[in-house]
Write a protein that binds this DNA or RNA. Structure first.
Length: 880
RNA sequence: GGGCGGUUAGCUCAGUUGGUUAGAGUACCUGCUUGACAUGCAGGGGGUCAGAGGUUCAAGUCCUCUACCGCCCACCA
């Protein structure tokens, strides 16, 4: 029963390490066996080589508080952790490391390189998981997964084979987005379009056997070397004479036809467009329609190749400059105009993406998208905030095939082999050892790997053992909610839904909760490299994980970004933690050895006891309601307001004399029982938000059993609502507020006690007489007189509250002029309101059309204002 | 080009189905070693609710338009 002394200020670091280890030892993070549907969250796997940044901190805080909340509600809970191999990003990181040693991946070879990445993986993995522990993530470490571990790799191959068999995976020669720096294909989602000020070059292509020429407009002159036609709209009369003519491509002398195509916009440029089927998606289509040659003029690094004639060996940028110069020299450059257009950039390295013709693997998405689309309509999937549903649906409507092959070394190898002897293609889950057709043993696996998201989209079931019918899969699929940022709604969320329906026949989660991004005052994402924030870990070192967590949640508007976050904002949570800590320090000595005794306390609760218990019940309801609706910021605010504004500001102040009075009396038991109840509830309500400190205090609170981490989530007790007590305390607060205001305005020294007179009518007069001691305590009075007949002192400060008059006879202290000014200001305010109310009540339309209650309320208000006005006026007159 | 958000106190945000004097935190000002907390206590100033028009007895709240900010999507040669 011995309770340790609490330090004056909360010291988080030691406390946090201790309790995390404790919870883990107790096995709280694993779902307990049991009845009832489990609560399941799968972590959006962070990039294994990344480190925990603010995005994760916020993301994990939300998931952890939901998990802890459900755990306290007695549900078996599983928050499954894991990391992502993040193909391109990780390969880039490791390549950069090699570069520091003056090496490239080719120097170490494919096998050596992949081994090197695995080594890095384990180093970084330890770092990120340690960060998660620091934050307090109550994840089930025994179920941790990695997107490249054996089980998940198996799932990836299985899915590839199944989709291939279904005809939903195919290989094709197509124009894809190519990053010349990463030297790999990208999906459409991995390209960021940036509006760029470019130029529109008007180039003249001479007509064969003629002095004339046709002028085409292009933003990319360097691709002209790959032109195999010039297209005009068939109905464009300007070009009617040119139909059937042949043009001579400058530099190369290639003869190319003028073709007619409906897709040409006659209004753009000159109405004649150069056609480069191997370097532009539109032209590619046109090339197919008109059976044009496809000539690639660049290599994988976007360096001009052997088809570029004299420009071979130049980068695409150099080639552009040289070609433009050369055109100028030959008088073939008609003009150049400024032109703003959108240019694609690599999501990973920001290099300008090249539309590039190459042989890649694709997933046919249309059939997969249909059930994902219907999920919203059928109510099987809700995306919060709801506005994101439109974004999701629109993307699905316009869905295009997914390019899944990557020319990288780090990732899941494509499970396709080709027989060297008979060229048979083998698509298989397990590595084949002989060609099923000719028996040849020389099988060559496709060198490419799969897009990272091709493993991530299986996360909701691959982590649970799929394709095996495991117990976990049966029990934990689908999960309860997906918590993530809207930036990966297409990359990940939509694709998980598709995979869920395709392979499990069910939506992987009923709710997607999208939260905002943490930004600084300039609206930039927080990052250490930008220098606009500390590392979250550093902030936790300085202020504690609880403070950081609570601050983030408190600052987050629903589904919108957190703006203006900075280190100082963590004070919000830190100060709050300190406040609660100290409130606890106040009451703890009085609770030592105390056991709450509702039976003995019953009948001895005071109004303030009943009021705080009633307010607590309201808070419990509100917090729970807000949590259910994912309004977690509001839930945090509910607790904040209750603890600080009600409990500390009022209740504990009122309770002090009773706490210091003799123990063991019925009143002493009542106040202690009340305090015990309130703290027991607050600690439980707050635990999901501030797991560490609440656990520490829970163990310091006498009579608690077990850990708060597994304590029961509070529900408002029956009979905990006390509206009459609430009303009486509300009156008290107003009266005390007014007294304090008077004292302050009259510059009364805080230590000086003053007589208080309240001219009040019944029934409030009786209430206020009962509150005698509290009014003296909180209003710093030396005496109190209450009643309808209280005489107004000659020299006094005065105020009117609910038609009751408060007098502070401060003889010798009253500055009459000051008091007059104060009263006059108040009087004028009341008059303004009185008049506006008067006008309303004289308006027949208002009386006829407004709801009865509204009119009634207005009448009451009018009456009250009238009385208040008169009293203020009299008091003003007396001042002279 | 299309779409989606937003605009309320210096800053960050609340503001339920229209109905008391538009709130909170923070910053600011004044005064306080008040029997837990100066990471605190008490008090105070500060808002033409982006603009215009409309609906209504009544608009921060509903409708229309405009301006500005932000985000997303887009095969604008």
């Amino acid at each position: 029963m011995s309770r340790s002394e609490l330090s004056k200020n909360y010291e988080p670091t030691e406390v946090e390490r201790r309790w995390y280890a404790h919870w883990q030892e107790r096995g709280y993070f694993a779902p307990r066996d049991g009845e009832g549907p489990p609560f399941v969250i799968l972590i959006p796997p962070p990039n294994v080589t990344g480190s925990l940044h603010f995005g994760h901190t916020f993301d994990h805080t939300i998931q952890d508080l939901l998990t802890r909340w459900h755990r306290m509600m007695g549900e078996p809970t599983l928050w499954l952790p894991g990391t992502d191999h993040a193909g391109i990003a990780t390969q880039n990181v490791v390549e950069k490391r090699l570069a520091e040693q003056g090496k490239t991946r080719h120097d170490v070879g494919r096998e050596g390189f992949v081994e090197e990445v695995w080594r890095w993986k384990s180093t970084y993995h330890a770092r990120i998981t340690e960060q998660m522990r620091r934050l307090g993530d109550s994840v089930d470490w025994s179920r941790e997964r990695f997107t490249m571990d054996e089980g998940l790799s198996r799932a990836v191959r299985e899915v590839f084979v199944r989709l291939h068999r279904k005809g939903l995976i195919y290989r094709g020669n197509r124009i894809i987005n190519w990053c010349p720096r990463c030297r790999t294909a990208l999906s459409d989602e991995e390209v960021n379009h940036v509006d760029t000020d470019g130029k529109l070059y008007y180039i003249q292509y001479p007509i064969k056997d003629s002095k004339k020429s046709v002028t085409v407009a292009t933003t990319r002159p360097e691709t002209m070397l790959g032109d195999t036609a010039v297209a005009v709209h068939p109905a464009d009369q300007r070009y009617a004479p040119m139909h059937g003519k042949t043009l001579v491509l400058p530099f190369l002398g290639r003869e190319i036809p003028i073709i007619l195509d409906d897709t040409v916009d006659a209004k753009f440029g000159t109405g004649a467009v150069k056609v480069t089927p191997a370097h532009d998606p539109n032209d590619f289509e046109m090339g197919k329609r008109h059976d044009l040659p496809f000539i690639t003029v660049m290599d994988e690094g976007a360096v001009m190749n052997e088809n570029a004639g004299g420009f071979q060996g130049l980068s695409r940028e150099e080639a552009r400059t040289r070609i433009v110069d050369a055109l100028k020299d030959r008088g073939l450059l008609a003009r150049v105009e400024p032109h703003r257009h959108s240019v694609g950039h690599c999501d990973r390295c920001d290099t300008v993406v090249e539309p590039y013709l190459s042989l890649q693997w694709f997933v046919k998405m249309k059939p997969l998208a249909e059930p994902a689309y219907a999920a919203i309509e059928k109510g099987e999937l809700t995306i919060l905030p709801r506005r994101w549903e439109k974004v999701y649906l629109r993307w699905l409507e316009g869905i295009r095939d997914w390019c899944i092959s990557r020319q990288l070394w780090w990732g899941h190898r494509i499970p396709v082999w080709t027989c060297a002897a008979c060229k048979e293609e083998i698509v298989a889950v397990e590595t084949p050892h002989a060609c099923p057709k000719c028996g040849g043993a020389d099988l060559v696996q496709d060198p490419d790997v799969l897009d990272t998201w091709f493993s991530s989209w299986l996360w909701p079931f691959s982590t649970l053992g799929w394709p095996e019918e495991t117990e976990d899969l049966k029990r934990f699929y689908p999960s309860s909610v997906m918590v993530t940022g809207p930036d990966i709604i297409f990359f990940w969320v939509a694709r998980m839904v598709m995979a869920g329906y395709e392979f499990m026949g069910k939506c992987p989660f009923p709710v997607v909760f999208l939260h905002g991004i943490v930004r600084d005052a300039q609206g930039r994402k927080l990052s250490k490299s930008l220098g606009n924030s500390s590392d979250p870990i550093e902030l936790m070192d300085r202020f504690g994980a609880d403070s950081l967590r609570y601050s983030l949640v408190l600052l987050s508007p629903q589904g919108a970004d957190i703006h203006g976050f900075s280190d100082e904002k963590v004070d919000l949570g830190r100060h709050f933690a300190n406040k609660l800590w100290n409130a606890f320090r106040l009451v703890q000595p009085h609770l030592d050895g105390f056991a709450p005794d509702e039976a003995k306390a019953k009948g001895h609760y005071t109004d303030e006891d009943l009021w705080i218990l009633s307010t607590l019940a309201t808070t419990v309801r509100s917090v729970t309601r807000n949590m259910r609706a994912y309004r977690i910021g509001d839930a945090a605010k509910d607790i904040y307001d209750f603890v600080w504004r009600e409990l500390c500001d009022w209740y504990l102040e009122m309770a002090k004399p009773r706490l210091y009075a003799e123990a063991g009396t019925p009143d002493a038991i009542a106040v202690r029982t009340t305090i015990h109840t309130v703290f027991g509830h607050v600690l439980r309500l707050l635990h999901p938000f501030m797991p560490f400190m609440t656990e520490e205090l829970w163990h310091a609170l006498p009579g608690t059993e077990g850990d708060v981490a597994t304590a029961e989530w509070p529900a408002p007790a029956r009979g905990s609502s006390h509206p009459e007590a609430e009303a009486r305390i509300a009156l008290l607060k107003e009266i005390v507020g007014s007294i304090r205001n008077l004292r302050s305005e009259m510059n009364v020294a805080p230590a000086r006690k003053a007589a208080i007179l309240i001219r009040a009518s019944e029934p409030d007069a009786t209430t206020l007489r009962h509150q005698h001691d509290l009014i003296l305590l909180l209003g710093k009075g030396e005496s109190l007189e209450v009643g309808p007949e209280v005489a107004k002192p000659r020299i006094t400060a005065s105020a009117v509250v609910r038609q009751h008059e408060i007098f502070l006879p401060l003889e010798g202290l009253i500055d009459v002029e000051l008091e007059r000014q104060r009263l006059r200001k108040e009087y004028e305010r009341v008059v303004r309101e009185f008049e506006s109310s008067h006008r309303k009540l004289q308006n027949d339309d208002f009386l006829a059309k407004a709801k009865k209650e509204v009119v009634e309320r207005e009448r009451e208000k009018f009456e009250a204002l009238g009385e208040t006005k008169e009293k203020l006026q009299r008091n003003l007159e007396v001042l002279g």
